[in-house]
Structure formats: C-alpha cells, structure tokens
Design a protein around this nucleic acid. Structure first.
Lengths: 229, 229
DNA sequence: CGCAATTTTGATTTTGCTCAAAATGAGTGG
DNA sequence: CCACTCATTTTGAGCAAAATCAAAATTGCG
C-alpha cells in the first residue's frame, strides 16, 4: 500500500492541533479502503474492532427491527469520525453503516483509541463533541417523529440532507448523494408511496425537481415554510 | 450544611474504584438538594453550569417543540449521572430534567469535570458508558417510534418503566413513580385519549391495573407478547 | 432489447386523532 | 366534615391522514 498523504488529515477537527510528525504517526497506523455504493462498512451488533474516519462519500447509519423494517438514523459526511463505539465503552456497533455513494474511509483498530485520546491533544475533545452533536441530532429527530405530521417530517429530512450535503446547481440546491423515495421513507417512518406523492406535489408547486435517486431543491425557502407550518 | 455521608457514593459505578479519601474529596465539593415532584432541575438550552447525580427519586428528561408539544426522551433512576453536558463539550443542556417524584440529587460545578476525569480512575469510563447506553436507548426509541404501531409503542413504554423502576407488589409489578396517561402519550408520541383506551382495554384483559397516576402490571408476560406482536 | 429497480397513481381501508362531554378522584379552605 | 375546584380519566362519534392493496409506467443498465 502506498503511504497516505498527510494532507488527508491536516485541518480536520479531530487532528487540527497536531503537528506533521503526529499526523504521520496516525496515518501510518491507518488502513484506507474504498466502499462501493450499497456496501456495509460495519453491521449492528458486530464486534466493534475498528473505528473510522470518512474521507470521501456519504454514509447512511441504519437500524433494523426484528420485523425487517429499517430506519435511517443519520447520515455521515466527509471528515467525520464514525463507528466510534470505543468512545462509549461499547464492544459492539450499535448500528449499521452503509455507503450511500461510493466512499473512502480510514480506519484504526480500537486498541489504539486510548492512545489517541491520551497522546493527541484535541482528539478526545473533538471526538466527544462529535458524539454530543450526534446525540443532539438524534434527539431532534425523535422529537420530530413523535410530534410532527408526515409532510413536515419529509420536509425536514430533505432540509437536513440539503444542509449536510447540498451543493449549488443551476436549478437550485442538489443533494450530493443518491436518495430513493424508499430511503426518505426510512428516514421519516412513512411509506415510499406517501413520499412519492409528496414529492410529486412539491414538484408541481416548483419546490423540488427530482429524477431517479436524485433530488434538487429549487425553492428551499418554501420547504422551510412547509417544515415549520 | 451537614457533611454528606460517604456511604452515599460507595459502590456506585462511577465511583466504585475509589478509596474513602477520594470519595470524601468528591463529596466535599458536592451540593445536595431536594426537588419536589414536578420541579425542573435544569432546562433545555440553559447554561450547563453543573452536572448531577440522582441519589433518590425519578426524573423525566423532556424536550419541547416550538409548537408547545413535549416528549419524554428517557427516565433517570437513582445512582445515575445526568446533565453531563460537559462530557460532550456542550455549554448548554440539550433537554430539560423534571422530578417525576420527589427527588434528591448531588451536583458539582462543571469546572471540576476535567479534574474528576483525570484524577479519579474509572470515572471517565463509567460516565462514557452511561452516555453510550443512553444513546443506545434513544436510538431504540427512535426506531420503535418510526416503525411500530401505537399499541406496541405504549406496551414497550410500560415495559421500559417496569424494567427501570418496577417493584413487586401483591398484585404484580408496580411502576415506582407517578405516571399519568398524558405522560405515557408524551413518551410514545400519541394522545392521552388513545393511551386511556389502551389501558382500559388491558385492564379488562387483566394485564394491568391502574388508578390515578399509579400503574401496576399484573401480567408482564402478556404485555411482552403485545409489545412484540 | 429485456430486465430489475424505482416511481407513480388510483382505490380502499384502517388507525388513531380531534372534538365533545361527562365521570371520577384528590386536595383545599371554610 | 363538606363543598368546591382542579386535574385526571373515561368514553363516544366522526373524520382525516396515511397505510395498504394493486397496477402500471418509467428508467437505467447489462
């Protein structure tokens, strides 16, 4: 394997306080791997033997029920740590991570976690900050799921994806990874049918434009209004 | 204020590895306070200036929506740390804590958190373990909310309370703190009407017995069956 | 081109909410 | 001790949102 370039980590929050030599040390212990769209990086309940950093692509973090249904708990964007079970003293992963688009991630064996925490200033702080943000996000989603009607939930889900991965296109803001109606229904606890109907209606109103697995929000403000109505 | 007795903390997970002198140190920095039923210990969005340990009673952790609705995210039992925003590098509390029954809690200023983490072996580990368990619980609730029908969600909510605080009585297992129909609907994202109807039906079937603010599960197994149906 | 995955749409059914009102119980103050 | 008030609980009726059932249409890919 070729040596990984130090610029990969420079400036990323968990490593921003470190010097070149420290980043070198960290990279030398890392394994880099590519994941095709749809591939699992790790699965719920499995042995948490590594922790990860997403370099490129997008992930879905999902949980499944005994009944075979699944829900998407959150998405991971480039630069974020994930699978950090060791930070919480867990020995199995609490959810499954799936590549939503072709992705590249670094990973380290959990046994170096404590080392990272003690040796590298800022690493612990940033990791726990990430965790705190994620806990907050999940609580937010839970509250939304418990109190809001389907239409608002779907609007919120779209807005979350836009905020996390939106990039300008000529028509509006497009979501940077493939998303199906089924995916959106897994994020919002509804059915693909209902999502399809909502998107069709919004398209007619000029709020979104979508082709298969690809969504552009043409009127974000209108969507915000819907999400708060 | 009288000195707090060392036996209060002895054996509790976050402090189980510590000797008498260390526990003394910790207690000498603590403030103990009683909270009447219904009182807020801290509120969502407020300055996270202290962290807490529940000595006695039960708490509800709630989040409110702009629309005035609220949901109960989880319950806290005696012996648990709570309000540990500093562990996640947050400077405001992400939720509100309300005494579900008369309660007593110790608290410390956040500035001693880092001290506790570095000076007292096992404290960090246990705190993060608590956090991990809580994250898992919330994910569980989210999944349930997104995929299960109201009847199952209410059955699960009852079972969770039974597991966390159940104590044997002559009739069955009783939930150790006051709970209203409204409370249960806030845990499950439904209405008090629906909860009332469910409890009435279950009472007729001999599964529960309830008076105002007080619930006894007389046939826990039947409830488990309902929660998995 | 044919296939499989995704999306759309219509019809029907069901769940659980809203609206409405009454019953019950617990605590308070006279 | 009793009357009164307020919170909690129960129950009924009607309705609406969204699920389910059922096809068909579309699209991208091999």
């Amino acid at each position: 394997m070729p040596k990984l370039d130090e610029s990969l980590l420079t400036g990323l929050p968990p490593f921003s306080l470190l010097d070149r030599a420290q980043i070198r040390e960290i990279l030398d212990q890392a394994v880099s791997r590519r994941y095709d769209e749809g591939t699992a990086i790790f699965r719920e309940g499995h042995d948490a033997d590594r922790f990860y950093l997403l370099l490129d692509g997008y992930l879905r973090v999902i949980r499944s029920t005994p009944g075979g249904e699944q829900i998407i708990v959150l998405h991971i964007s480039p630069g974020q740590l994930f699978g950090i079970a060791p930070a919480l003293q867990r020995d199995t992963y609490p959810a499954t991570a799936i590549a939503a688009a072709e992705s590249i991630a670094l990973s380290w064996p959990v046994r170096v976690w404590d080392d990272f925490i003690t040796r590298y200033p800022g690493f612990a702080t940033e990791s726990y900050k990430t965790l705190g943000q994620r806990l907050g996000q999940i609580q937010e989603t839970l509250t939304e799921m418990a109190t809001q009607a389907v239409e608002k939930r779907v609007a919120c889900a779209l807005l979350r994806m836009v905020h996390q991965s939106g990039r300008k296109s000529d028509k509006g803001i497009e979501i940077a990874f493939p998303v199906t109606r089924q995916n959106i229904s897994d994020m919002t606890g509804t059915t693909l049918h209902t999502v399809s109907r909502l998107l069709s209606a919004w398209q007619k109103d000029g709020i979104v434009e979508s082709t298969r697995k690809h969504i552009v929000v043409t009127d974000p403000h209108a969507l915000v209004v819907l999400s708060e109505a």
